[in-house]
């Protein structure tokens, strides 16, 4: 295996085209099983809950809560310029637990259970992407 060159970018595959098209328009969508209604993230071809290949695309609220988080100080080469940065497991309102970058927050101010919402940021001209950030509440 050769060291990976350049950035670690998502491949915008044909099967996931609806996701990337929606993301480009500022919508966060995923697959829902038509048989058992389980919502998956990332989008799946086969339902991890029941195995069905009957699926539909559904909108996600883009809101959730942090289950766990860390501040990454050793990172893959293409991320060095951004380090240190925060990644987290976020429980989406609709159920799935996902891995994501957290932006616009310091490690010290974050807490387990913190409410977060999605933000959108293109990685290149062609590749849209997303992150999560704290929901600012008036206190």
């Amino acid at each position: 295996m050769k060291p990976a060159d350049g950035k670690i970018l998502p491949r915008l595959t044909a099967d996931k085209k609806p996701f990337w098209e929606a993301l480009r328009q500022g919508r966060f969508i995923t697959t829902r099983c038509k048989k058992c209604a389980a919502i998956s993230f990332p989008p799946r071809m086969l339902c991890p809950a029941c195995g069905s290949d009957q699926r539909e695309w559904t909108d996600l609220s883009g809101r959730g809560a942090i289950y766990a988080f860390t501040q990454n100080r050793i990172v893959a080469r293409s991320f060095i310029a951004e380090a240190p940065f925060i990644t987290a497991m976020v429980d989406l309102e609709e159920g799935p637990r996902i891995l994501t970058r957290i932006e616009n927050a310091s490690y010290e101010e974050l807490k387990v259970g913190q409410a977060v919402k999605i933000g959108f940021k293109a990685l290149t001209k062609e590749i849209p992407f997303y992150y999560f950030e704290p929901v600012k509440t008036a206190r």
């Binding site: 950035k7 491949r11 595959t13 990332p42």
Partner: peptide, 8 residues
């Protein structure tokens, strides 16, 4: 495609 690009 969905996790690695976040830098995890």
């Amino acid at each position: 495609d969905f996790e690695a690009p976040h830098g995890v």
